[in-house]
Design a protein around this nucleic acid. Structure first.
Lengths: 214, 214, 214, 214
DNA sequence: CATGAATGAGTCTTCATTCAT
DNA sequence: AATGAATGAAGACTCATTCAT
């Protein structure tokens, strides 16, 4: 039975509370950074008591980790769906992965701020490496394979699939950062266009001239 | 009079003390992040008293700002020298700017960590924008102009100079991040090669096939 | 109905639960002291929920009091049985009381630790005085009377029964403490021997030379 | 220059502040036990800020340890002076050590409460063992040697010096505890008398009949 | 009888900053 | 220019207790 007063129920299943706290944490990190993401502020935002965060996550660190895991999984789910679409050509799949990378659910200021909060702190960077490296590696492998198919199909003797995939990873991250830092100069759509332009220069027959994705 | 015990002199010119403290701060931010860069730790590392940091920089914030300014100026000096070399062609200048971007004095783990510490925190991000945006803008303008010259020289009717410059900015940042995050997969030299490869795909006549800079 | 999973039954008679919780508390106090005897730890050890402790004892304080009462009664039962044995001489009864004092069920590290946990805290000391003083007084009275009989029987004109009883109380406690603090130097058997040696010096005819108890 | 208003100076040599805090801690432990000895309460009592305790002792634990060390050294100094007096016979020295043990500066309710606070907590007990065991051992050795001299002088073939010393240690601690627990029944003077009575029973020629010390 | 979610008070600790010397 | 004692605010965490189920 839902609570009748519109407030959150006084008692709720753990998963609901966890999500509530994770969302509040993302909000706060986005606005105030990891150092500004204090338990008092997070729980105030979530409308819950401070003790509850420790009850559900063991410690503040546990909560922060849960945030990273939640974000990483959301991100992975996003591009993995695209990479698995059997209706797409290799170039189409790469295009779909690019779309996922800059999809509003992933690439918005609040979440970008959280990603770079993790990147910007050595301790969290280590945790990111321990947690999400596999996901990044996997995506790079997938893109590498797709590029290899394109290369073997056409005549791109001088191009190394791994180098292209690595350059794409760099572009993804760098454009994310510039969207975060200079929202007036960089937009998600502009970023997509730039990545596609890069690919069009490398693989003109596959990405040149026509719009790849929607 | 020099101190008789081998420690730093009890009295020293302000500039020397400032540099000492800025260097210690860079070290600490690199190892522990901005949140770990506490005055006790910084001054311990510098071998100076805590009061002195406030004396010379007014506040901790002042010290952090001084670090950013110091880094930004070092970076700007680096690429501006290259951009000003009259002995280089436009493509050569761009190549030299790339070299500057990944020069060991700029692109080492400690300093990259500091850059991304600034990027990762909303408050410091704002300060970065207020302080260093001009520098980034200027570099992007310089690169845009150089690209425009290349474009007007050759026949690259479909290429927009500003887009190329923006893509380069993205690549710079993204490759920096990947060097920081995945040092085993990304190196400064590899990054340079990838940027040049991108330019070679866009401007084959100017960057293709031969080494641009040294 | 017995629980089907091997865990404790979901419903059990209060006395059983109380004993479970008291035992767990003794264990924890023995290992971590009263300050380390937190409800989370006690109930974890007992395999029960935290709410249950409050349900059965009203509050944590109630549980702690129950522990003291349980221990005090166990102790009193022990020596009272000995003091009541009609088959023993006065000296034999005193010997039996000494045996009870250092009996393994009473004088083991875990329980000694609990006793001194109570002695070491003013609040619990007060509660001890309110609860168990009567028991200590009674034992001292019993021993005083026994000594008085011995004195009146023999020729110990200079000896005060009450002083001997008080000295014995001191020896009991002090030897307990030393057994707890220096288990390598002090043992229960050694302690008994020392107490008997003291009595042998005071009442040579009654405790000298032969083993008093078994 | 001393402060003119009777309050403590706003800045003082570390030793003075340390003593201030140690004294306040002893007071508070005496009244509220170790668990009640919170930093807020201790510093309130000392009239100093909470941060200062950590500044001077590193942590609360550091302060507690300093308290134990301070007490142990005071105690040791006390009896060592007596044990070293060349004007006393062996029995006189033992008597003087007994006097030291129950001297008002050592054996008062406040300090006894602190000792038993340490004895009553496993963690602090361990620290006591690591810190003060040597002192206790040394005193027991000294007393053992003194007893051995007495034994070899007279005719006490059945008496073991070490046993007597151990019994004395037990008596010391047990009488301390009873003075703390039952101040109406046990006094320092009464305790001294009981110890001497014990020795008089063991070594009648040396402790019997006359007052040993003052 | 029993659980576990939830709270709020309280503790230790760290830190930026100030100030007297 | 430089130190180090001192403060007060703020944060993470723990815990006894309550309450709905």
């Amino acid at each position: 039975m839902p609570s009748e007063n519109g407030k959150t129920a006084r008692t709720a299943p753990p998963e609901e509370r966890r999500k509530q706290l994770i969302d509040a944490t993302i909000e706060v990190i986005g606005e105030a950074g990891i150092s500004g993401a204090t338990l008092p502020e997070i729980t105030r935002r979530a409308g819950l008591s401070m003790g509850l965060a420790n009850f559900h996550f063991g410690s503040k660190d546990g909560l922060i980790r849960a945030v990273l895991i939640s974000l990483a999984e959301e991100h992975r789910d996003m591009w993995k769906v695209q990479a698995g679409r059997s209706d797409l050509s290799p170039a189409g799949k790469i295009g779909a992965i690019i779309d996922a990378q800059f999809h509003p659910r992933i690439c918005n200021r609040r979440k970008l701020a959280v990603w770079f909060a993790f990147f910007g702190n050595p301790m969290h960077r280590k945790f990111y490496q321990a947690t999400a490296t596999g996901i990044d590696d996997e995506r790079m492998d997938v893109v590498t394979d797709l590029c290899a198919v394109i290369i073997s199909d056409g005549d791109f003797s001088g191009v190394d699939a791994r180098d292209v995939a690595a350059t794409l990873e760099g572009l993804f991250d760098g454009l994310w950062l510039n969207i975060l830092m200079y929202p007036d100069l960089f937009s998600a759509d502009g970023a997509k266009a730039k990545v596609v332009a890069y690919l069009a220069a490398i693989f003109p027959a596959h990405f040149g001239g026509h719009q790849v994705s929607g």
